[in-house]
Design a protein around this nucleic acid. Structure first.
Lengths: 309, 309
DNA sequence: GGCTCCCATGCGACACTCGCATGGCACAGC
DNA sequence: GCTGTGCCATGCGAGTGTCGCATGGGAGCC
């Protein structure tokens, strides 16, 4: 009904095929046995087993001075070689996977990770495992997890912000991401290293959305801190413009803190005001991760340690 | 030193591969077991055996609701299919050989067989076994046997004339070939069916060679019959010319008796004068003949029975 | 005619694979 | 929250297969 081929044909051992090829090459059961570490009787039996598994008809003519393949044997020869070649190829493929010198890896990451974390890990991965086909995609955490579910991604770099159900995935923590406030170089707090958000209650804010619920400011809002969003800009490069011009201040995740323009200062936000976000590498729950994914996670952690987080 | 691949890798059973593919297709050990006629435990063990034969690393992730191939499993999938396809192909090749619907057959025959015996057998063979690649070569018996020895022929149609050592071959008798004397229609014995050669002692003969030792006349020469070779012609068509013109008589083997021109009569020679030549199909001693060769021999025998011999 | 070389086969030991039954794990439903 | 269900893993005993050892038989060579 379903499978077109491979009916109830008797199974056979690949050892038989190896013995078959060696016998054909050497023209002798005894010689082949010597070469393969078998007894002559074992070779004789294995050839007999192969002959009967393939149906009536001998594969070798037994001559007084060795053996010669019959017509059937000559026909089987290239097939047996192809079979063993495929098996060798399979083994090679698998060892390549184990040594992370083959296969592919599809990584997804939330946008901020693309600033420094991901590029660093990708660069290191490309250098160490150049033969792995690596592809990176950007997306929001929810979207990434969905693509993970659909088998479109092997690994997703996500953060705990969204309400997504991370418990349904295997997580490996990469880093805790703290938050900064970007202020213009001439700001009154510009010399400080750390601030409480209440100190900035009077400033105008530039944010990704006019509604704080949908922006980075969301976890910071409380009674004594209701930020006034004076400007809206989604891209960090635009936010920088407003900040540098002295019009507003802005929140910036630590992962995006690299390469900020020189006329802007970054002040660490107290973790009681905005708790650090955990950044995870997520894989499907219960699924064993590809070796390449494990190697990539290792490099992501390194990148997280070396970078500012 | 010699073989590049297939080191001492552990052997594996093709049954494991079939089970592997079925499990991958159905996503369940239990379902695969049902379809293949195994127990679930047997499937579990076979997959485990395959996994350990291919080195560390699982091929399936065991989930609460069935299994899913791991990366390794996905890589192995096409390889396993290729292996089983090659095995199916091998089986198909072998059954084609057994049913004489494939393979090749190289036949050699001595020249006279090409007159009628061989063409008839070839025609019948081509009709019944159109997918066998059949080739025919002509040659003298000694030459044919040599080519058989060198593996250039699968089957040789030979006769006992030459001093060749037929005992070194496997022979299957096709027919006993008697000899005829060709005489012009107006010859004094033209109405006879059988003659003794002594009755033709006074006639001129046309023969393939001026020396009787190297012609068909050789076995006929004795004290009371020393034929006078008046004309020499190698080709039977030329001999016919001399005979039809009333200039000479000629010996003709039964196999060449077909299609003789109407102004010539053929008289059977008494077998005491020239003993019948045995015609054999020869194959290498001890070598099992291809199925196509056996079929061809059968057709040769039929052709020999139906033709004039 | 004896010798040698090669493959086939009976024998006992060992390993493998099977089915049966049970156990463990995770999810679903009451 | 607990039990039921579905799925895979595994211990056990029986049957089969495969091995090495030893021997037998057939064909050529000296």
């Amino acid at each position: 009904m379903s499978r077109p081929v491979t009916g109830d044909a008797p199974a056979l051992s690949t050892a038989w095929l190896r013995v078959f090829l060696e016998v054909a090459r050497l023209g002798s059961f005894t010689e082949a046995a010597r070469g393969l570490g078998y007894t002559q009787s074992a070779v004789s039996r294995q050839i007999h087993a192969l002959e009967s598994a393939l149906g009536a008809g001998a594969l070798f003519d037994r001559l007084p001075r060795g053996v010669t393949p019959t017509e059937r044997g000559r026909v089987l020869l290239p097939r047996a070689e192809a079979v063993l070649a495929q098996l060798d190829g399979a083994r090679a493929d698998l060892t390549a996977l184990a040594q992370v010198s083959g296969g592919r890896l599809r990584v997804g990451a939330f946008p901020t990770a693309g600033a420094a974390l991901l590029p660093r890990a990708v660069a290191a991965f490309r250098e160490r495992h150049p033969r792995v086909e690596l592809s990176c995609a950007e997306g929001l955490t929810e979207d990434l997890l969905s693509r993970l579910d659909h088998g479109e991604l092997d690994l997703a770099v996500v953060s705990t912000t969204a309400g997504a159900d991370l418990a349904a995935y295997d997580l490996r923590k990469l880093l805790d991401e703290s938050m900064y406030v970007a202020v213009p170089a001439g700001h009154r707090l510009a010399r400080r290293r750390r601030v409480r958000l209440a100190e900035l209650a009077g400033d105008d804010w530039v944010s990704g959305s006019p509604h704080t619920e949908r922006s980075l400011l969301h976890p910071a809002v409380r009674e004594d801190f209701r930020p006034r969003v004076g400007y809206v800009a989604a891209e960090w490069i635009a936010k920088q413009g407003y900040v540098a011009a002295g019009l507003a201040v802005a929140l910036i995740p630590a992962l995006a803190a690299d390469g900020v323009r020189p006329d802007i200062r970054l002040l660490a936000v107290h973790e009681d005001d905005i708790p650090p976000r955990a950044v995870y590498a997520a894989t499907l729950r219960g699924r064993s991760a590809p070796a390449a994914a494990n190697a990539f996670v290792r490099l992501l952690r390194e990148a997280g340690r070396n970078g500012s987080a």
